[in-house]
Amino acid sequence: MTGTLAALGAGLAVIGAGLGIGMVGGKAMEAIARQPEASGDIRSGMIIMAAFIEGAALIAILLSILMA
């Protein structure tokens, strides 16, 4: 039972991270389309933001592995 709940928790964490990274990526693409000369800065900013969101999701997944 706890295993199932942990799997559900991991799934929920992934939904959040997916929404977050999707938003970061979408907005970055819009920004690059609007201002192609700033694409380098936008891209590295995008990767860092995505990495932070991923970090939060990974902590949630680690917790669900530990609780399983």
């Binding site: 990495a51 932070f52 991923e54 970090g55 939060a56 990974l58 902590i59 997944i61 680690l62």
Partner: peptide, 9 residues
């Protein structure tokens, strides 16, 4: 911690 988990994960 996130640096460690991200790569391994």
């Amino acid at each position: 911690l996130t640096l460690m988990l991200r790569l391994a994960g």
